[in-house]
Structures are given as C-alpha cells and as structure tokens.
Amino acid sequence: MAKNTHGRTLDLLGEAIVSRRYAVGTPMPAEPQLCEAFGVSRTVVREAVKSLVAKGLIITGPKVGTRVLPDEHWNWFDPDVITWQARAGLTPEFLRDLQDLRRAVEPAAVRLAAERATAEDIEEIEAAYAGMKHAVEFGGDYVSFDLRFHNGLLRSARNRMLAQMSKALHALLRTSFEISTVKKDGPAQSLPMHRAVLDAVIARDPARAEQAIILLIDGARADIDEVLGSRRRLPRLSRPPPRLRAAV
C-alpha cells in the first residue's frame, strides 16, 4: 500500500538519519530547507519531526534546535527504525544485536507455542512449511514462506509482547534466510530441522521444541558469521527475496 505524504516524508528523513547523512549531534536542516527538499508543507515536516522525536532519533527544542541523537537512544523495537536500518545497510553490530535477541526470544516463544498453539496455529505453520518444501522441490520463493513459518511460531506463543518481537526480528530472519538460500543445498538441509520444530510443537513437547529451534538458530548464526568473516556483501532487504531454482 502506498504511503501518504507524511509517511513518505518520515521514511525519507528516517533513512537519512539512520544512514548517517545527518551526523549525530549536529543541527539538521532548518524547516524551510526540509520543505523545499521534500516538496512538502511545513505541517508535514513538523509531523514527521514529531514522529522522529517519539522514536528517539532526534531531539528538538528552542535552545538545542533539532539534532540527531546517538543510536543508543533510538527505539530499536520500532518497525520503522528496523526497516530504515535494513534499507541503509545491515551492519555487523546490528546483526550481532539481532542474533542475540533471537537466541534469547525464539526458544522461549517456541516452548510456549508447544503448550499453547491452537489447531488454527498449527494449520498456518503447516501451510508455511508446505510452501518451503514446494520451493525446495520445484523452485520459487522460499524466504517468504520461511518468514511465515517463524512468525507463525511466535504468534502461537499467544503472548502479545512476543508477537511484537517478530517485527524487530524480521530483518534478521530475512537476512538469515537469504544467506541460507545462496548456500549450496542450504534450504534443503534446513527443511528437516524446521520439520523437527513443527513436529515437537504438534506433540506438545516444549523441551524438544526448544532444542530443535536452538539448532536452527545456531546454524543460521554460523551462516551469518561466515558471510561477515568473508566480507561478502549482505543481502539488500529493499529488494524482493531471491527465488530458488527447481531441484534437478
């Protein structure tokens, strides 16, 4: 869905800040300059600035002007902030933080999913798994179904706060899955591990489900660390996910 003028202006300013086009601590361009640069009214700029203050990216006031805050002040659980960072480029530090978050959150969520998942939840995760399996065997969009699988697990925990975590984890999950797709037989090798997680959830076995997801997470972390160590370029999340070729 296309964003309105406010949403587009907020995205442009947010991406400019996250990509460091506006340096930390230095004054941002004055309101008239931003209006001219983006072709919008003062009202639109002011609303965008208010949103950026709420997200912790900037501070504004009569004595300090409008200045960019250090990134430790940013709201890293805000989906917009995560999206802007993903578009600006996934740094090793950003990925490390997200990997730590995933290792802390997803095993606990899967334990709860094994206790609380409804029949509808299982059906949704099964459908995601079927999409992954089809992509491995016949080609297609593996990454989107992989995301659907893991988001389904988080929702199945039936915890509203954990469900919100999926928005923060989205960038890491997609990066991880895209790295796996470019590894020879990566998706085919991870498919049985996904099945093991799902089977443990269906069996209502929290301990087995937790161990199965930890195997998946640690394997994904090793893949990312390998790419970072080789200095190969990380995926750009502004592009559509890559598609698998059909198995020969």
Rank of each mutant, 00 (worst) to 15 (best):
Gly131Thr: 06
Val49Arg: 10
Thr175Val: 01
Leu153Ser: 01
Ser144Trp: 14
Leu10Gly: 05
Pro92Tyr: 02
Val227Met: 15
Glu106Asn: 05
Pro206Gln: 03
Val64Gly: 04
Ala48Leu: 04
Ile202Gln: 10
Pro92Met: 11
Thr175Pro: 00
Pro192Glu: 08
His134Phe: 07
Phe77Thr: 10
Glu115Pro: 09
Ala203Lys: 06
Arg232Ala: 15
Pro241Tyr: 09
His134Arg: 14
Glu210Leu: 01
Glu120Gln: 14
Ala247Ile: 05
Ala188Tyr: 01
Glu210Gln: 06
Thr43Phe: 08
Pro107Ala: 09
Asp11Met: 10
Glu106His: 03
Gln99Ala: 12
Ala16Asp: 14
Val201Lys: 00
Asp100His: 09
Arg116Val: 06
Arg160Tyr: 07
Ile224Pro: 03
Ala128Phe: 08
Val40Leu: 08
Val64Ala: 14
Ile58Trp: 03
Gly25His: 05
Arg231Gly: 11
Arg221Val: 15
Arg158Tyr: 09
Asp199Trp: 00
Ala119Trp: 05
Glu120Trp: 08
Pro206Gly: 11
Val182Asp: 15
Arg155Tyr: 12
Asp199Pro: 02
Arg21Trp: 04
Ala113Gly: 06
Arg232Met: 13
Ala247Pro: 03
Leu237Val: 12
Phe94Asp: 08
Arg67Ala: 04
Ile17Asn: 00
Met193Phe: 08
Leu173Gln: 08
Gly7Lys: 03
Ile125Cys: 12
Val44Glu: 10
Gln211Ala: 15
Tyr22Asp: 03
Gly152Tyr: 10
Leu162Phe: 11
Leu228Gln: 06
Asp11Ser: 09
Gly139Ile: 04
Glu210Arg: 00
Glu178Asn: 05
Ile125Thr: 06
Arg111Trp: 03
Ala163Tyr: 12
Pro235Asp: 12
Asp199Gly: 11
Gln33Phe: 04
Asn151Gly: 13
Phe177Thr: 13
Ser230Leu: 11
Asp121Val: 09
Thr91Tyr: 10
Pro192Lys: 05
Ile179Tyr: 03
Ala135Leu: 07
Val143Asn: 02
Asp11Ala: 10
Asp225Leu: 11
Arg195Asp: 07
Asn151Pro: 02
Arg87Glu: 11
Ser176Asp: 01
Pro240Gly: 06
Gln99Phe: 13
Leu12Met: 15
Pro235Phe: 09
Gly186Leu: 01
Pro79Phe: 08
Val53Arg: 08
Gly65Met: 04
Gln99Val: 10
Leu101Val: 04
Phe138Lys: 14
Ala23Ile: 08
Asp146His: 12
Leu98Ile: 06
Met1Trp: 13
Arg116Glu: 07
Leu112Val: 08
Val201Gly: 06
Leu10Asp: 04
Met1Ser: 14
Leu191Val: 08
Arg195Tyr: 07
Leu154Lys: 01
Thr175Ile: 00
Arg233Tyr: 04
Ser51Met: 11
Ala168His: 02
Pro235Cys: 13
Ala209Ser: 13
Val68Gly: 02
Ala113Lys: 00
Tyr129Lys: 03
Thr181Met: 07
Leu234Phe: 13
Trp76Pro: 01
Glu106Tyr: 02
Arg236Met: 10
Gly139Asn: 07
Ala163Asn: 12
Val81Tyr: 01
Val24Trp: 06
Ala117Ser: 10
Met161His: 15
Val197Gln: 01
Ala30Lys: 13
Leu98Asn: 02
Pro29Gly: 12
Phe149Trp: 01
Lys3Leu: 15
Val136Gly: 00
Val201Ser: 05
Asp218Met: 11
Gly186His: 00
Leu162Asn: 03
Glu15Lys: 13
Glu178Cys: 10
